[in-house]
């Protein structure tokens, strides 16, 4: 990216925000409040939801399922990925299933999850955990399998044993892939937790949206959407930064 285009500008985003909010306010006021909420109404709702603590409580419920499911996905996903990478045959055999599950939209699996896990916390946890774990393990396996052959040869030529090979070549080489998997897994986990809250158990931030929809309170829905967007942005941006840090580790020399 040429710096000319991406050089940070403070005024343009503010100007754009003012334009968008202003336009929205004008349009919003002229439409039925049951359908559309101007920013002033959203701000008021957001403030009252925060004052009553409803939003914080909802966010806490969401975060609990999100972090527990994601942590489990990391704990299970990385070792499983290492296993698949170390045993290429196992990886090759499992890959089609993982790929198929991963490409299946989760909303359509909801009926199956209901019959298997019910509609409680475990069911939501599974929605967060499973797809996130697949993303992490598939990327980890790729990292382990894609060790740079020239560096493997360097280590062999200097008589490195298997442990040294793993420590100095295979594991550091796999880390950028693992981190990429962690980022994709986090995105999946965020979507998973919201699906669970909207389709399984009407709780958390997803539940706030769903309730707002039933009560015909667009301002309430928008408040929850905003909180989700902010939380999502924070989590993904943090992992993006981590990923960038490891970018040079991937670098082929010429």
């Amino acid at each position: 990216m040429p710096s000319r285009l991406t050089k940070p500008s403070v005024w343009l985003p503010i100007l754009s925000l003012v334009l968008v909010l202003g336009g929205w306010e004008v349009v919003g006021r002229s439409i039925d409040p049951l359908l559309f909420a101007p920013p002033s109404a959203v701000a008021a709702t957001l403030a009252s939801l925060l004052a009553t603590g409803e939003l914080q409580a909802a966010a806490q419920v969401t975060m609990k399922a999100l972090f527990l499911g994601y942590a489990l996905a990391i704990i299970a996903g990385i070792p499983f990925g290492v296993l698949m990478g170390a045993l290429p045959r196992l990886g090759d055999i499992l890959q089609p299933y993982l790929y198929a599950i991963f490409s299946t939209p989760r909303v359509v699996v909801v009926p199956l999850i209901i019959v298997w896990f019910g509609i409680g916390f475990e069911a939501r946890l599974f929605l967060v955990f499973f797809w996130s774990a697949i993303a992490i393990s598939v990327n980890t396996a790729q990292g382990v399998r894609h060790a740079r052959p020239d560096l493997v040869e360097v280590a062999r030529s200097f008589r490195a044993n298997r442990i040294e090979m793993a420590r100095h070549v295979l594991i550091p080489g796999a880390i950028p892939f693992v981190v990429a998997g962690l980022r994709i897994g986090a995105e999946r986990a965020i979507v998973g937790v919201i699906i669970g809250e909207m389709f399984l158990q009407i709780v958390g931030l997803g539940g706030v949206i769903q309730k707002g929809s039933v009560e015909l309170l667009p301002a309430k829905m928008l408040s929850a959407v905003m909180v989700i967007a902010v939380l999502g942005t924070i989590i993904v941006t943090m992992l993006d930064l981590v990923e960038k840090r490891f970018q040079s580790w991937r670098g082929e020399s010429t």
Partner: peptide
């Protein structure tokens, strides 16, 4: 050995 692609560990 000295390698054509240098064979340096980037990390």
């Amino acid at each position: 050995m000295v390698f054509q692609t240098f064979g340096l560990f980037p990390w």
